[in-house]
């Protein structure tokens, strides 16, 4: 039996590795977009402790 450089097994492994790679890349992109949305959606002008504090924040009383 001749030795081939590219066995069918390599093809299968490559397919699996490419799949995992694409999923990881997708995950990274999702985290980036999510972070961007979270940061841009936060109203920094209405920080906790100010008069119109955002819902869910605690108002600091002196």
């Amino acid at each position: 039996m001749s030795i081939r450089a590219e066995h069918e097994l390599h093809g299968r492994r490559k397919g699996r590795n490419v799949g995992v790679g694409l999923m990881l890349a997708g995950f990274v992109v999702l985290i980036m977009v999510m972070t961007f949305v979270k940061i841009t959606e936060t109203d920094f002008a209405r920080a906790p402790g100010t008069a119109n504090s955002a819902v869910g924040t605690t108002e600091i009383k002196n």
């Binding site: 097994l9 299968r12 492994r13 397919g15 699996r16 799949g19 995992v20």
Partner: peptide
């Protein structure tokens, strides 16, 4: 291992 190698 090669025979039973799982795919994605």
């Amino acid at each position: 291992a090669a025979e039973h190698e799982a795919q994605l």
